[in-house]
Simulated assay, not measured.
Amino acid sequence: MNLSEREQYIIDRYQAGEAEMILVFVQWCHNHKLDPLVVYREAYPNQALPTKLIEINQELIESNENVQIETSLLLEILQVYGNDDLAFIVANYAEKLIDKTKKG
């Protein structure tokens, strides 16, 4: 594998991981009846919504799949990919959800 192929392999693996991160985020939002596009905009109000986020959200809505995602897993994945602002917003939502559950 030459340098160019190795670089492309790394880029491809990163992009695949990023798509998986988006899927986990979108699924977590759907699990908690949150709109992932709204949550993302809270974290990054000055950025356009990523095309991949919109696509994955639509695919998940159409598939109607429901896989439970632990908040701790989502937070860890977001931080690995440097989405600290989004992780902060998700943590705030998670705290509100816990408080809501405790109150009944």
Rank of each mutant, 00 (worst) to 15 (best):
N2K: 05
L3M: 13
E5G: 15
E5N: 04
Q8K: 15
I10N: 05
I10Y: 06
I10S: 02
I11F: 06
R13I: 11
Y14T: 10
Y14K: 07
Y14M: 03
Y14W: 08
Q15F: 09
A16L: 11
G17W: 01
E18N: 02
E18G: 05
E20N: 09
E20H: 12
M21L: 07
M21G: 02
M21N: 10
I22S: 03
I22M: 08
I22V: 12
L23R: 13
L23I: 02
V24L: 04
F25V: 06
V26G: 00
Q27S: 06
Q27P: 13
Q27R: 15
W28D: 08
N31R: 00
H32I: 06
K33G: 07
L34R: 02
D35S: 01
D35W: 01
V38F: 15
V38W: 15
V38T: 03
V38R: 15
A43W: 04
Y44S: 01
Y44T: 09
P45W: 08
Q47S: 07
A48L: 12
A48I: 08
L49N: 05
P50V: 12
I54Y: 00
I54T: 07
N57I: 02
N57R: 05
Q58T: 10
I61F: 08
E62N: 13
S63V: 02
S63H: 00
N64L: 09
N64D: 09
N64C: 05
E65G: 01
V67N: 07
V67A: 03
I69E: 04
E70S: 06
E70Q: 13
T71I: 08
S72Y: 15
L73V: 03
L73P: 10
L74T: 06
L75V: 14
I77K: 11
L78S: 04
L78R: 02
L78E: 01
L78Y: 04
V80M: 15
Y81D: 03
G82D: 02
N83W: 15
D84F: 09
D84G: 07
D85T: 02
L86W: 14
I89Y: 02
I89R: 06
V90W: 08
N92C: 11
E95T: 10
E95R: 10
K96E: 09
K96H: 09
L97E: 05
I98L: 08
K100V: 05
T101Q: 05
K102F: 09
K102L: 11
K103Q: 09
G104R: 05
G104Y: 15
